[in-house]
Design a protein around this nucleic acid. Structure first.
Length: 288
RNA sequence: GGCCCGGUAGCUCAGCUGGUAGAGCAACGGACUGAAAAUCCGUGUGUCGGCGGUUCGACCCCGCCUUGGGCCA
């Protein structure tokens, strides 16, 4: 049995997942893009040791902080793990808030072999010119991406050049359906109380030593690791540089987390067919 | 008590010599296939503090009131 437990940040997924795992002979598998990294404990609200000892936990805290990880690696890791668990006859509880990772892992997303591409020839094109380049290669894909979304335009060009296929072709070869017989749950929460919980959680992170943890990691790794784009890390840089007060940075973290919650909910609403639940009981009732 | 600034969108503020208002942030909605806690897009009617006056017409001028801050008594 495969269960997916998602929901906005701060809805209590980690605890419910661990508790559920104990009850149904299951394991918890991370579906959070930043909890995969090592050492980044406070900022990512990594499940603490006692929680992780209460049931087997996988794909947490295992990627070196200064290397980068992506959906592609996640898909491979998750699928390999699910295959192994199936052999062992264990139930999987995939818990986390990164919708793309869940979709790429469980749906028929395909990441074809892709050669590294030198994008430097495009570096000095402006957004519109760059978008025109993409339009020449794959009009359909270009139409779906706003020219200002330079990151995605570049990524799509790299994809096409690196795989020899257009993005449209790749998408057309998929059914956009899950490959696994999984139940998808989403933890519901009203916006206002959720925002309050988010704010309180950020305060708690500061009490738990967020600043100290980040300072230590930045001293060790510099500021370039991709993992430092995490909310709760990057916002502290202006404080380290004496450009903002700690209080201002804390507010930035709260604000960015709230914005993130909103984006997550939009993704969940439109990219999945999810069963809304209020808590653990609803899930147990649904799978028994 | 007198003088000087201010009271415009949830917040910070713009609004040329009068033609009924606009930015940033927030908020809300949306996109999302190798950076996703990322990246990007869309949405601005608000008694312009209140009442009266001048005017064809006032956020903009005048008077009174109210309110916040500062200075002088």
């Amino acid at each position: 049995m495969i269960l997916v437990l998602t929901g906005a940040t701060g809805t209590g997924k980690s605890k419910i997942a661990a508790s559920l795992a104990q009850k149904i002979n299951g394991v918890v598998i991370n579906a959070d893009a930043f909890q995969v990294y090592r050492e980044l404990h406070i900022a990512t609200a990594m499940p603490d040791e006692s929680l992780r000892l209460s049931a087997p936990h996988y794909l947490f805290d295992f990627i070196p902080l200064d290397s980068s990880y992506s959906v592609y690696e996640y898909q491979e890791d998750l699928r390999a793990l699910l295959a192994e668990l199936a052999i062992q006859g264990k139930n999987a509880i995939i818990a986390g808030g990164t919708g793309l990772y869940i979709r790429a892992g469980l749906y028929d997303y395909e990441f074809p072999e892709e050669a590294a591409v030198d994008l430097s020839p495009y570096a000095n094109l402006d957004n519109q010119a760059l978008h025109d380049v993409l339009f020449q290669m794959d009009p359909e894909a270009a139409k779906a991406i706003h020219p200002n979304n330079r990151l995605r335009v570049l990524r799509t060009i790299a994809m096409i050049l690196g795989t020899g296929k257009t993005k449209s072709e790749i998408l057309a070869s998929q059914k956009h359906l899950p490959l696994y017989d999984a139940k998808f749950f989403v933890l519901q929460s009203d916006r206002a109380p959720l925002y309050e919980r988010v704010n309180a959680r950020v305060d708690k992170m500061f009490e738990d030593g967020l600043v100290e943890e980040n300072r230590r990691l930045v001293e060790k790794y510099g500021r370039t690791p991709r993992a430092f784009r995490a909310i709760g890390v990057k916002e502290l840089f202006p404080y380290f540089d004496g450009l903002k007060t700690l209080e201002e940075c804390k507010e930035d973290i709260k604000k960015n987390t709230r914005n993130y919650v909103k984006r997550q909910e939009t993704f969940f609403r439109h990219q999945f067919s999810l069963i809304p639940v209020e808590g653990e009981e609803d899930i147990l009732a649904n799978i028994s």
